[in-house]
Amino acid sequence: MSNAIELVDVGWTADKAFALSDISLNVPMGAIYGFLGPNGSGKTSTIRLFMGMLKPDRGSISIFGRAVPKDMKSILARIGYVPERPHVYPMLTVAEQLRYHASFFRLWDDGWAKELMGRLELDADRKISRMSKGETGKLLLLLALSQRPDLLVLDEPTDGLDPVVRRDVMAAVLDYVSETSATVFISSHLVHELERICDWVGVMDAGRLVAELPMQRFKNGIKRLRVDGAPEVLEAFPFVVLSRHRDNGSGSTETWIVQGWEAPMRYQIETLGATLRDVADLDLEESFVELLRSFRPSTTAGAD
């Protein structure tokens, strides 16, 4: 068993306007998997599918090699989940919420929960309904981490939080991962947030998983090329041309966004009679945008 989460050809239809189609997703054991995608691309729906909250129309899902939703009880005992929106009971205090949550998890670490509460500056007697969004976000993470999960599923955990809280949350996650070999599945539409911490990345768009690869390959594999004198029709390259457009006012110079580029491939371009003038790295956000652009023949709508 090498994958913590595995989705094979999973399809799910919400309504006429939105569906997840043929999602095959693999989250390696011990990885920090960044799940990227614009709002409404299907990230939360995908998470709900493997959390056993949505029933897939087709395909199969397994977590730690166990089938979803058949073995959901034992699976959920190993998952720390921070949902997109707060799901805790507002009439409870922090301490009461911790007691409630702890009663369901065998591996709950009370000492660590208290330590984290101090680190995250949460007041045990504070009523949840009176907490700020940032405090609620920290509480959700505290709940998820204190159960000592093997898999942390964080659905937009920092969305709407201020930079200080965001840093605290991410730091707590990284500390946990550094102490354990837990797998982290973190979804976000904030690309730069994931750039520093993830070692795998999956990109969703309009209900499809358009890319899934190691972060390093994702960051280095997408380049911007400036090419002179390229023919109208391109033959097959060992790399993928995601997009090409002619530069304004520069004659025959074109900009290509390519995936899977490696330096020796320059020769292949020159055999066409074209000249490679420049190769530039894209940062993750630019790569993400270019990748999405290449997959979007037209405007799509969806639900997250």
């Binding site: 959390m51 909250m53 699976i75 959920l76 805790v88 009971y89």
Partner: peptide, 17 residues
């Protein structure tokens, strides 16, 4: 009441049937 209002997400994420 609160399960309905919170969309049952919490209950469904707890390790019990």
């Amino acid at each position: 009441n609160w399960d309905h209002r919170l969309g049952h997400v919490y209950a469904l994420s707890l390790p019990l049937t």
